[in-house]
């Protein structure tokens, strides 16, 4: 009995080691923290349009009354991964027809206008969050981040970081499809 007790440390270490090995999985992103907002209504905010862009801004009201599943993408012209993500978002909008709203985080109107002119504009609305207040309300941890908002203005899903690569895209699209399906079922039920 006593001898067995002396094996306890090794067992504990092996167990911990197993978890550590699991944690090393290259596909695991320790920074991906789910938002406290999940299943919560969107935070209260109202963003003005970007000056000179010619697209309307948006706020909580627009999201609550959207009547369909909407994506909110936090982006900025100064953010390098956003450029790479831009192509993915553009394709996603073209292929799925989902409504995409841009939360333009701490960006100069002239910069973002030039950026969108150059890369093309997949956004239906772009709100200018010049001082980052809306970003704080949304609790973002960095740029880019993308949220899936239900028709009733509930935050359904949050993706931290750029949606780049087949795995990330598949993950995000699955979440989007589920959201849209749930929405369709809810409508059919009504």
């Amino acid at each position: 009995m006593k001898r067995i007790l002396f094996f306890l440390p090794v067992l504990l270490v092996v167990l911990t080691g197993g978890f550590l090995l699991w944690g090393l999985d290259a596909d695991r992103n320790p920074s991906a923290i789910p938002s406290v907002l999940i299943s919560q209504p969107v935070p209260q905010f109202d963003l003005p349009p970007v000056e000179g862009l010619g697209l309307p801004g948006f706020g909580s009201v627009e999201l609550e009354q959207a009547g369909e599943v909407v994506l909110v993408n936090v982006f900025a012209s100064w953010c390098v991964p956003c450029r790479a993500e831009h192509a993915v978002l553009t394709r996603m909008v073209r292929e799925t027809g989902v409504v995409l709203m841009g939360l333009n985080y701490k960006d100069k109107p002239a910069d973002i206008t030039a950026w969108l002119d150059n890369l093309g504009n997949p956004y239906d609305r772009v709100g200018s969050d010049l001082d980052g207040r809306a970003g704080i309300e949304w609790g973002i941890s960095g740029v880019p981040e993308t949220f899936i908002i239900g028709a009733d203005g509930l935050v359904l899903y949050r993706y931290v970081g750029p949606i780049i690569g087949p795995k990330a895209e598949a993950e995000f699209l699955t979440a989007l499809e589920q959201a849209q399906q749930a929405q369709a079922e809810a409508e059919a039920g009504v």
Binding site: R83, A84, H86, A87, N118, L119, G120
Partner: peptide
Amino acid sequence: LENGVVTPR
């Protein structure tokens, strides 16, 4: 310039 991304332009 765009790190390999083909922009609309």
